[in-house]
Design a protein around this nucleic acid. Sequence first.
DNA 1: TGAATGTTGACAAAAATAGTAGGGTATAAT
DNA 2: ATTATACCCTACTATTTTTGTCAACATTCA
Lengths: 144, 144
Amino acid sequence: MKLSTRGRYGLKAMYQLAIHYGEGPIPLKNIADAQNLSENYLEQLFSSLRKNGLLNSVRGAQGGYMLARSPRDITVGSILRTLEGNLAPADCVIDGEYDCENEENCVTKLVWMRIRDSIDEVVDSITLQDMLDEYEYMKRKNKI
Amino acid sequence: MKLSTRGRYGLKAMYQLAIHYGEGPIPLKNIADAQNLSENYLEQLFSSLRKNGLLNSVRGAQGGYMLARSPRDITVGSILRTLEGNLAPADCVIDGEYDCENEENCVTKLVWMRIRDSIDEVVDSITLQDMLDEYEYMKRKNKI
DNA sequence: TGAATGTTGACAAAAATAGTAGGGTATAAT
DNA sequence: ATTATACCCTACTATTTTTGTCAACATTCA
Ligand code: FES
Ligand code: FES
């Protein structure tokens, strides 16, 4: 039940881009350096995020990546699902994915559904803007 | 973010034992056959569950496994954690496990914490008895 | 043009998962 | 006592997933 590095690195990187939202494209190298990650690996993650419409890219010198829309309109859920796939704890509670036999009478399926729903509710309710706000709040609290 | 077969098989098997709670020891073979699982593999899971105090065992002929206490007092959470380890989505939100550097200012950690808490709340609120009750409810609903 | 940057696909090491295999030990029934 | 049953334990292995690396290429800016 752990997230892989894809989800963990990816969310951090998207948060970094959120910090610089509106400043034009940020080169991958900046993000990778700031977090001490492999540029090549992060590239794969960004490729997925771009194909899913969460990032825009600008090629060439002075190019880079930027959020495709406002931090307010990008949820943690959309990021994690792009990088990790569906967040359900078992395949049979993913729509159209896989059906166990005898699932009409399966009680454990009800458990998986409840876990799935509670995760979805959390990740879909948090946006990148919420994370920015929380950082401001943390900073103020720690300073005073 | 998937559960492994340990958690999935294990919960189903524990549910089977719950159905037969109070009937004395049930041989592993019965459970394995009923679910078409490898007896040897299930044995490993039961070994963990027994060491964690969730199962009792009786050796020898007519022996087998049984729940260590009432289905009402065994939560899904205790079963899944025994078999899967802590259900947190990242190591840094497990007490005493691992600390990221700079975690005082880490906003993603707040996200992991909220995911962790919501999973915990679900799995710790469901007991084996709840699962038995849900099955009765399902059966009645489907019959009528 | 040349340097900076994104794009793509193939490849590979390492770790985790999902079992198998087999010998040992305790107990009940006979 | 003997035997069949069934738990107990450890080691091993095949497969899959994760976590990257690498190289060649395309685009843009100065
Ligand atoms: S229906 Fe998939 S676990 Fe029961
Ligand atoms: S503190 Fe662990 S991810 Fe930030």
